[in-house]
Computed example of a mutant assay.
Amino acid sequence: MSTGALELPLVAVVGPTGSGKSELALQLAERFNGEAINADSMQFYRGMDIGTAKLPPEQRRGIPHHLMDFLSVREDTTVAAFQTMARAAIADVRSRGKLPILVGGSGLYARAALDILEFPGTDPAVRTALEDELESAGLAAMLARLTAVDPVSAARISDGKRVVRALEVHELTGRPFSSFMPVRQYVTSTVQIGLDGNRAELHRRLAARVETMVSDGLLDEVASLIPEGLRDGRTAHKALGYQQFLRVVDGTSTVARATEETIVATRQFARRQLTWFRADPRVQWLDWAQPDLFDAAAALVAQPAKGAADA
């Protein structure tokens, strides 16, 4: 193929869990000399391998995978921090003449990497002063103050916490909080490929996937992470499967019950993922079961890409 990797777009493979994103990303990486950049927020954690369906290194076909295993289960990150790391990884991959392929189903994280999306900072002193003012002056007075500097935000929000946040952002940046609202505009030329298919088949896949995780040792993995601080962090212990099997460790549930609860929760999560990605009209959907899936995806990657301003 004559098209060089540097001329190709940033590729994002998105969709619900269990739809085959990892495999398609590997195939595209092999075809286009690419590297994978993880956008599954639970695969950030070291040791959370079975329950997150993390692709083992020996199954990655020599394709580098970035932004995996950089957090302990005690730690947390933010979408803003991920945005910085993801864009640095994208730039690094491109600097070596490779195609960056973002892959994962964590919708907000994927969007933070792909779109013009700013995250204004915070200042504890400013936040505390505004909270004290809210307590003394009342919500109506704070809303009136917000209306004077940011009528768009004032018309959208009504609870004290969000009013304080909007005022904090204005005080720190001099810009209205509404100016930071996300827009569907890519930072760079991008192709988003979404995988979807028959819903009954997805349910079957997810059930089989959870059952395989259990037979592969999910309970032992959960138990082994407790001394590492699984219960101590704000996020890791809430992951699908981990919260259910922690109850098995505690003796308040059974493997059978935890397995069924995880299957149900995973189906619900997949539904939310589809809702999120379906709301983005730029995603180009393919059926995971179509015989020419790889060729169809490769054609999308190779087509003339829309730039950031055209997306």
Results as ranks from 00 to 15, higher is better:
4 G>N: 11
5 A>C: 13
7 E>S: 15
17 T>F: 01
32 F>D: 08
39 A>H: 11
40 D>F: 01
41 S>G: 03
50 I>P: 00
53 A>M: 09
54 K>I: 00
58 E>I: 06
63 I>C: 12
67 L>V: 05
71 L>S: 03
76 D>R: 07
85 M>P: 00
91 A>Q: 14
93 V>N: 01
96 R>K: 15
99 L>N: 04
100 P>F: 09
106 S>N: 09
111 R>E: 10
113 A>G: 13
117 L>N: 08
119 F>C: 01
125 A>H: 11
145 R>A: 13
146 L>R: 00
146 L>D: 00
150 D>A: 08
154 A>S: 06
177 F>C: 10
182 P>W: 11
192 Q>V: 08
198 N>T: 03
205 R>T: 13
207 A>W: 02
210 V>T: 12
218 L>A: 04
226 I>M: 09
226 I>V: 15
228 E>F: 08
230 L>S: 05
234 R>L: 07
237 H>M: 00
239 A>V: 02
241 G>S: 11
255 V>G: 04
257 R>F: 01
266 T>D: 04
273 Q>A: 02
276 W>K: 02
282 R>A: 14
284 Q>D: 03
291 P>F: 05
292 D>G: 06
293 L>V: 12
294 F>T: 15
295 D>H: 09
304 P>T: 12
304 P>Q: 07
309 A>I: 12
